[in-house]
Simulated scan of single mutants.
Amino acid sequence: MTQTEEKPKVIRGDDLQAITPHLVCAGAADAIEFYKKAFGAVEKMRLAGRDGKLMHGAIKIGNASVMLVDESPDWGSFAPTSLNGSPVTIHLYVADVDAFIDRAVKAGATLRMAPADMFWGDRYGIIEDPFGHKWSIATHQRDMSVSEIEEAMKAFMPSAGGCDS
């Protein structure tokens, strides 16, 4: 934590969400520093074990909480880098997807898909952080009905079929 950040005195119920990502990282303390630099995250909590590994960390990205922990193979807890990737992508809405992705890439993220205007009304891109976690980043541009999205998808991907095809 920087000198200007203040550790919370208590963890309040309104700090918790119904669903909160809990990321396993090889180097969770380094991950916190990356998210602060790349995503503008605010560190809320850090508990290190006797071996120095992070037993629990918490950050806030925008209005969302994210928990972190160091991988612990003895407990069956592995980071994406130990598993050759992760099937999970974390979706994050931001005010300016282009600037956000640019800052994340400059901080060490890998660009997987450059931001582009998408048929469902978002400007959208994908990055992978240095710890193996994939993030889809979006800026909402316009509200659309389900039927408008379906029509736009057909134009965007003419061979795309529905679930029943």
Rank of each mutant, 00 (worst) to 15 (best):
K106C: 05
K106E: 14
K106P: 02
K106N: 13
A107C: 05
G108R: 04
G108E: 07
A109T: 05
A109Q: 04
T110R: 11
T110S: 10
L111M: 10
L111H: 00
L111S: 02
R112H: 04
R112K: 15
M113L: 14
M113F: 02
A114V: 04
P115T: 04
P115E: 05
P115M: 06
P115F: 03
A116H: 08
A116V: 09
A116R: 11
D117R: 00
D117W: 00
D117E: 14
D117F: 01
M118C: 12
M118P: 00
M118K: 06
M118T: 12
F119L: 03
F119P: 03
W120C: 01
W120Y: 15
D122S: 15
D122P: 07
D122Y: 07
D122L: 07
D122T: 08
R123H: 09
Y124S: 11
G125A: 08
G125S: 08
G125L: 06
I126R: 13
I127T: 01
I127H: 00
E128Q: 15
E128M: 07
D129N: 03
D129C: 03
D129Y: 01
D129W: 02
P130E: 03
G132N: 09
G132D: 09
G132V: 08
K134E: 13
S136I: 10
S136V: 09
S136Q: 14
I137A: 11
I137L: 14
I137F: 12
I137E: 10
A138M: 15
A138W: 10
A138R: 09
T139W: 04
T139R: 05
H140V: 09
H140D: 13
H140P: 09
Q141R: 15
Q141K: 15
Q141F: 06
Q141I: 13
R142K: 15
R142D: 02
R142S: 13
D143I: 06
D143V: 10
D143T: 11
D143Y: 07
D143Q: 11
M144S: 07
S145T: 15
S145N: 12
V146R: 13
S147T: 14
S147G: 01
E148M: 06
E148R: 04
E148P: 05
I149P: 03
I149H: 05
I149A: 11
I149L: 07
I149D: 04
E150T: 13
E151M: 09
E151N: 12
A152E: 14
A152W: 09
M153Q: 07
K154L: 12
A155C: 06
A155M: 10
A155S: 12
F156D: 13
F156Y: 13
M157Q: 11
M157P: 00
